[in-house]
Design a protein around this nucleic acid. Sequence first.
RNA 1: GCCGGUGUGGCGGAAUGGCAGACGCACAUGACUCAAAAUCAUGCGGGAAACCGUGUGGGUUCAAGUCCCACCACCGGUACCA
Length: 802
Amino acid sequence: MAYNHKEIEEKWQKYWEEHKAFKTDAHDFSKPKFYGLIEFPYPSGNGLHVGHPKSNTAIDIISRKRRMEGYNVLYPIGWDAFGLPTENYAIANKVHPAEVTKKNVDRFRTQLKKIGFSFDWDREVNTTDPSYYKWTQWIFIQLYKKGLAYKAEIPINFCTSCKVGLANEEVVNGVCERCGGEVIQKVKSQWMLKITEYAERLYDDLDQTDFIERVKIQQRNWIGKSKGAEVDFKIAGTDEKLTVYTTRPDTLFGATYMVISPEHKILEKLDIQNRDEVVAYQKEAAKKSEFERTELNKEKTGVMLKGVMAVNPVNDEEIPIWISDYVLASYGTGAIMAVPAHDERDWDFAKKFDMPIIEVVAGGRDVNEEVYTDVNDGIMVNSGFLNGMKVKEAIAAITKFLEEKGIGHAKTNFKLRDWVFSRQRYWGEPIPMVYCEKCGWQPLPEESLPLKLPFTESYEPTDNGESPLSKLTDWVKTTCPKCGGPGTRETDTMPNWAGSSWYFIRYVDPHNDKCIADPELLKHWMPVDWYNGGMEHTTLHLLYSRFWHKFLYDIGAVPTSEPYQKRTSHGMILGSNGEKMSKSRGNVVNPDEIIDEYGADTLRMYEMFMGAFDQEAPWSTESIRGCYKFIERVYRLLENVTPEEDYSKDFESTMHKMIKKVSEDYEKMKFNTAIATMMSFVNDVNKKGSITRGEMKTFLTLLNPVSPHITEEMWDQLKFEGRVYEQTWPTYDEAKTIDSEIEIPVQVNGKLRGKVVANKDASKEEVESLVKANDDIKRFIDGKEIVKEIYIPGRMYTIVIK
RNA sequence: GCCGGUGUGGCGGAAUGGCAGACGCACAUGACUCAAAAUCAUGCGGGAAACCGUGUGGGUUCAAGUCCCACCACCGGUACCA
């Protein structure tokens, strides 16, 4: 009865499919619900990657366990199928993207089914399906109606050699990722989404979630909340004022000059004596790409505005104004007060252009030699009424002062920028908007959705950076939904992130043609209980989908303000050389080959066993054999099963310990140690020579979530009732996890010197007498003065001698 | 630079402040075999030993891989955000 993984896995996959074993009745509210989610894959032409099964198996394990714990489980799958790689592949191979997508999806489906995930396959969604993107478009229209979608002139990345607009992800080190060509900024009118309006809530509501800490931190950093104040500076001899944003209003007395960004609009209104010089600098700055401004140009540059002075509102001193590209137009007010003594960038600038440096916070070294930015220990000096205060007190005092005088106020700023939502591409959702000369931009009537992506063979990019759809004159020319006059369609499409920002909502009710999903069902099923995915999606997909969800919550379309209760993240699987897997590095492992050789049960187990789940780990073709051998050993247990339906006496505590350890480890995603525990168990069984039916039953149930096929097969061969996936999760008795006799290590002066065996309830005195009688210990303590003795019950006996 | 993460045998990795190296890979020896593979059994940080060993240097503690301070290296994110 050799282990034949192919036969066994095909058999049970067929069984599950025929019996709809993992189909979810979403209307069954009688049981508690569990909604497990993995990031739906992008069906690329390369097929499944070994990274996919890692995340999928983890949530599959949790889902299978939850079913056995009595939950109604939703564990769905779908396809995030719009996007660039498909489009590029289509262009290169002259196959329509729709056809490419269908082929890839079919391949992915086949591959995933071979791994035995307990997905509800009847809920598949596909972002390229008009019945799906109908609702993506509907959401866009709702955003537009609430003023959260708007058009703006925004520079896009444009590759001068491919003559195509590029997504930020396609620009690597300032050049085109594909051809290495120069990337320039081309200003285009783009649809933008006002994610910034939700910045505060996206930041604060993280507290309500159970996201792992590093996800929360990364999102918080990305949103970049900072507290400070806006302060008005008068321009001497004019009615103009310059408003700055600062997080350190306490240092206002130390402001020795101001800096504004080259794009600042106040420049037009000022009477600048050296305007030629200023204009030249503006031109120079405009020529630089974002890349050059940030990467190449660390050295500070700038021009002082001649004949213009600003007035520091706290001491009426006149200070000069500079323009410099180290001040960004897009953050704060585009203008700063420079406090060189206590800001690193201002210090660098002041040193280069020889501006005065005034210390206003004491506690550092000489501010002419070294900048001092500490906010905790400093005491205010040279600061009028703030003198003697600590920085934190000074911030409060000056803010109050500014507000009373009406020259400033407390202000919170965010780094987060609005979301550029337009793509000059073919393979995406058409944006359902029409432009009319008379009425401006108008959304399509909702009942006319979906606006289908027109089928065309000319989906190649245009050479002017416009969307390929712009070439379809018949489609572009339409009528205005409002006045019925002539109108033109928006030809840009939505980004990949659109369809993936709400797919978890659709899973709940994937075939609904009345709304995004039935509110009753959403009320029961939302939020997603556990969402696992890659860290690389933390600041884009995860943030975008939280934004959309909050918006949908605000308009009453979903019942929760957060989409996901818990977010975890897996570590990447690296190539065997320790580098990221990639075609060009030649270290890619194809899961098909692994399944062929060892089977899905081994693949699943190995991916869970290879290291800590949240850590990256290199693939090893040798190590995977270890898991295969273990599964073979498990299968061979069938030869030594004894008929008792209970646990044997000498294995009772082993069983209870194992149930506890495996159950807890699965919940903590410590799959590697859960599997190690089961390996040890099998080693123990083999040492003993036999296993009872009762022990077998528990063991197979515990192992089932990791390796479902082999366990189902053995269950069947042992003629246990029902199927493993229908069983109840084993429980343990805490009292029975403790051995009656325990071994207590004994230390003398911090070094392990021996061990004594005692009853688990032994008192300190009883253990002490055992220790004192122990020859190993006697050697070290005889004739020595005992200073101290410590007994940690059941764990350690320590003696300190002199 | 800043923000995260990680440094433990030949390798992947275990260890609520309490026996460092669980579990597995590789390796070695033995059994089986004409032989090899597979399988099974045993061993496997260094050192003859005392002892020494968790990136480095300090510290706290009866006891530190684990806590504190100061560093170093690698990986990921971010890029002058005032």
